[in-house]
Design a protein around this nucleic acid. Sequence first.
DNA 1: TCTGGGGTCCTAGGACCC
DNA 2: TCTGGGGTCCTAGGACCC
Length: 427
Amino acid sequence: MTMPQTVFALVDCNNFFVSCERVFDPALEGRPIVVLSNNDGCIISRSNEAKALGIRMGEPVFKIRDLLKQHRVRVFSPNFSLYSDMSERVMKTLEQFSIRPEVYSVDEAFLDLSEIDACVLTTYGRDIQETVHQWTGIPVSVGIAETKTLAKIAVELAKKSPKTHGVLNLTGSPYRALALQRTALKDIWGVGPRLVKRLEHEGIHNAEELCQKEDGWLLKRFSVMLVRTVYELRGISCLGSVTRDPHQKSIIYSRSFGTPVETFEAMREAVSAYTARAAEKMRHQRLSVRTLNVYIATSKFHPWEPPYANAAMMHLPVASDNTSELLFYAQRGLSRIYQAGYRYKKARITLLDLVPTHQIQQGLFDTADRTKSSRLMAALDRMNRDFGAGTVHYASEGFEKAWRMRQESRSRRYTTSWDELIILQCD
DNA sequence: TCTGGGGTCCTAGGACCC
DNA sequence: TCTGGGGTCCTAGGACCC
């Protein structure tokens, strides 16, 4: 029995965060720009002009300040509400081309094109590219192939070679072997730095050579995961859906502090604020949590300071989506791990064991009035949504927030905040 | 002075049971 | 005195991804 041939397209937004900034300020076109991580720490998105200057992904900003200045690179603090809104617009547009695009990340989606006539696939890809650009202003590249792993390779090659104009169809292509030959190990989806090292040690240096290896040999030395990747490279689709279904398994809220935290009170504020943010995210997805993890740490970059990191795992008797309840456990967890005398740089709240709120198992001795508390939470979320984040918050989150992260040059939230709409002048 | 944040999956090893 | 071995469940940590 032969399986029907699968075909996937990977649609990948070019330099996504940078492209979002450009949509609302066309003067940025052709200029080097970068977007920074939270706390204005590292580079997380670069325009082609910035890449050409040798600015690397993940580069700490303080190391390249002179370079940025010298070339008059426009620098943006991240504006995630803008980016996620733009992302939704792109994904919505893709629904024109496939019943249910699999949203893989903020800037990537897979489309199942198995039903599309093989002779029109490349044209179809171009159509996707043009429509997304026209409807959202975001430039995308499209890679088409028999498996998701090959589609990834196709899209990377499409970005690199100008001849393709951003669309490359590898299905049934005589160039596939050549494409694999030109793909370094580190550029294969699922192969990270550790595997690269081990594979190179075995004398394998590109995707094509990896494909030639026998299954048994791979299995003996590596894992089933790598075997799966190799099958994909050979054109046999064996990855399931990449979307987060049926619901997310964990929610993290993690931030570095703008200035180090050195007192229990300040840390308690930060942990409370982070817990409240994580709880908001969770309620937005109609989930409740059974296990909560509190983590605090000093900087890992200051070897001259005494290091400390610890985490506390807290189990709730009954799954909850109530911020007050979560705050109680978070604070209790914190007092278990907090040690005085350190300069803390980061805190993190992880919510694990998430369950849909509508199917919570009530505890035998649980007397809390769940309906009442969920109405309170809904009211709180609504106020913060309609009147701006932080309109109403818990006192334990604090008011001074000296630990709050730095954000010096964020663009306006053009699409999600009434106060920050774009203004046109017509003279 | 300044070094991000949010996820998933797999595996090894310990605890415990029969 | 003999010091087995299989199964399951849980967790921490590794590896990878964007």
